[in-house]
Design a protein around this nucleic acid. Structure first.
Lengths: 241, 241
DNA sequence: GCTTGTGAAACCGTTCACAGCG
DNA sequence: CGCTGTGAACGGTTTCACAAGC
């Protein structure tokens, strides 16, 4: 009964124009709801875990438990992909993996360019989850010529000026920004100029992108501050006199 | 069977276990909505930027532009903190910073323990945003004795077995998990056992925490997959004519 | 029996639009 | 005037509850 709320906090900004704030209503919204899309990768991961454990079928209840959500939500989410379950039985694990992968576009390869090889960029370049599911780093870029030539995770750091070449030469459509905050907007603009249409921003700043470019952000210090709020709250109401 | 333990959803918040075991459906009086809380750090950052630029007052419109949101949302969010604006004028920047910091509990110091000093943990330990706003790393821990003693960002890596000592000795209430996925749940349990009541999880796995413990997650590969979905979608509907 | 798939209801968050006030 | 603060309308998400079907 005590299921709690999930705030899809910052999450999706872009999709239909984050550039101009005023008068830009989303024109068409056909398809899978954003909230569902955000959970599909979670189901995918849970399904892989179940498959490794030898399961060949799952009920919505079991998948829900593995993913940490409510079973009705699982069924609703999956129903957006089609009717791939069997009543009285559940879902075929392999088949479901396939359909979700398909919906997420993971059956094709995505080339990613990562800008900024400081502390965080370094870690991201070496992160396994990057290469694991169809995402390949096509280039590591940095504006600092002192870093150019450095070898990280089997890749050579190139200068920012090579951006166009890297993007066009590898069909890159996703850019990851791991620069300091003050450089982020310019990097973002250059990524967009080079043809990147999806951006994942780790810099602690608000970015503006033109319509048609998707933007998501990951912000460590915001996360900590949100936890701080709840801690604060807990200690405040802790003792009712 | 409904889940008893709060499972991590998408930056989910564990149910704050109130002391009353009786039916306590939804009194929900004094709370700021989660969605608002999640934006307060954003406003705070924007306000700091404005203050550095010399602004002493802001309208909701101007703050909204800086934060990349809608001005009505800013006003609603701020109204949860109290009536700190002046009609016809706007908000006093300093005062607003103060009230938001207060609401977020940033006027007090928070000690954080970081578990896992691999690639990512390394980067997190060195991340400026950590120390910047009242968050102090009280300990870097790792289960690998080969890493113990290593110096990172001015701190010495200690062994996981020192967890209790670190947590109790420094009044740590926030734990950050940057371990591989398979170690995360055990680390989480140990953190909770040691008295940590808020956890930020970077491991790509679903964690279970008891009621009263807040849990948020940051998941790189999920973010990429969500971007993949939108890219996929774009290329599919790309050329109608 | 069991579990899916789905209308409908309940809930929550966003946006509108304007009254209220400096 | 201009801008805040907010009731009310709106749209999306979650949850319920049950009919459909293996």
């Amino acid at each position: 009964m005590s299921e709690q709320r999930a705030a899809q906090v910052d999450g999706a900004v872009g999709a239909v124009g984050a550039g101009t704030p005023a008068t830009d209503p989303a024109p068409r919204r056909r398809g899978i709801p954003d909230a569902s899309v955000a959970r599909l990768p979670l189901y995918l991961r849970s399904l892989h875990g179940l498959a490794e454990g030898g399961r060949t079928t799952v009920s919505s209840e079991a998948l829900a438990a593995a993913a940490g959500v409510n079973s009705a939500k699982v069924r609703k989410d999956l129903s957006h992909l089609g009717s791939y379950g069997t009543r009285g039985v559940g879902y075929e694990v392999d088949e479901l993996v396939h359909h979700i992968s398909n919906a997420l576009g993971l059956t094709q390869h995505w080339s990613v360019v990562l800008v900024g090889v400081g502390n965080l960029g370094h870690a991201l370049a070496g992160y396994g989850g990057f290469a694991s599911r169809g995402f390949q780093i096509a280039g590591l870029l940095d504006a600092d010529r002192g870093r150019v030539g450095e070898q990280i995770a089997g890749l050579m750091v190139r200068h920012m000026d090579d951006l166009d070449e890297v993007v066009r030469g590898n069909g890159v459509s996703i850019g990851v920004i791991a620069t300091p905050a003050r450089a982020a907007q310019e990097v973002c603009d250059r990524l967009v100029g080079a043809g990147v249409t999806s951006i994942l921003n780790f810099a602690p700043t608000v970015l503006q992108v033109p319509p048609g470019v998707d933007l998501r952000k990951v912000d460590l210090s915001m996360e900590l501050q949100i936890l701080s709020f709840h801690e604060h709250r807990k200690s405040a109401k802790g003792v009712p006199a």
